[in-house]
């Protein structure tokens, strides 16, 4: 693996997505911070919310793989050797984790807002 570097994937993504890549990077930082803030606010993970978010996240993973193939004019049948599967799994993982965190965040913030409004009612 002496010549292997994750920078390649960053370069690939930059060429493909352009400024959208930076929107995604900033978005993922905001989502991570929101997730950490919710952990503190709720004093841990809200398990039901997390399980549902994970289920949506799995679908998001598949969506990420499909999106990648759409922008490179390719399909699942083009996936050949082990390194291709590694790339697919990597993209799927990114999609899954990203979607899970975003759904958990949105749900948590929405639930928090409802609770807040409820307090004032």
């Amino acid at each position: 693996m002496q010549n292997f570097d994750p920078a390649m994937f960053v370069a690939v993504l930059d060429e493909m997505l352009g400024p959208l890549l930076w929107v995604l990077v900033v978005g993922s930082i905001v989502a991570t911070l929101a997730f950490l803030w919710l952990l503190i606010r709720d004093r841990g993970l809200v398990s039901r919310r997390f399980v549902v978010s994970e289920l949506v996240g799995v679908a998001g993973g598949f969506g990420a793989v499909l999106f990648m193939q759409l922008i490179t004019h390719s399909g699942l049948s083009d996936v050949g050797g082990p390194v291709d599967w590694l790339l697919v799994v990597l993209i799927w993982l990114i999609g899954t984790v990203g979607t899970t965190v975003v759904v958990y965040d949105l749900w948590g913030l929405w639930a928090g807002r409802r609770a807040l409004l409820g307090d004032h009612a």
Binding site: V12, T72, G80, V83, D84
Partner: peptide
């Protein structure tokens, strides 16, 4: 390989 295609195209 698909990865080689992705590199070429992008």
């Amino acid at each position: 390989l698909w990865i080689s295609w992705v590199i070429k195209e992008t």
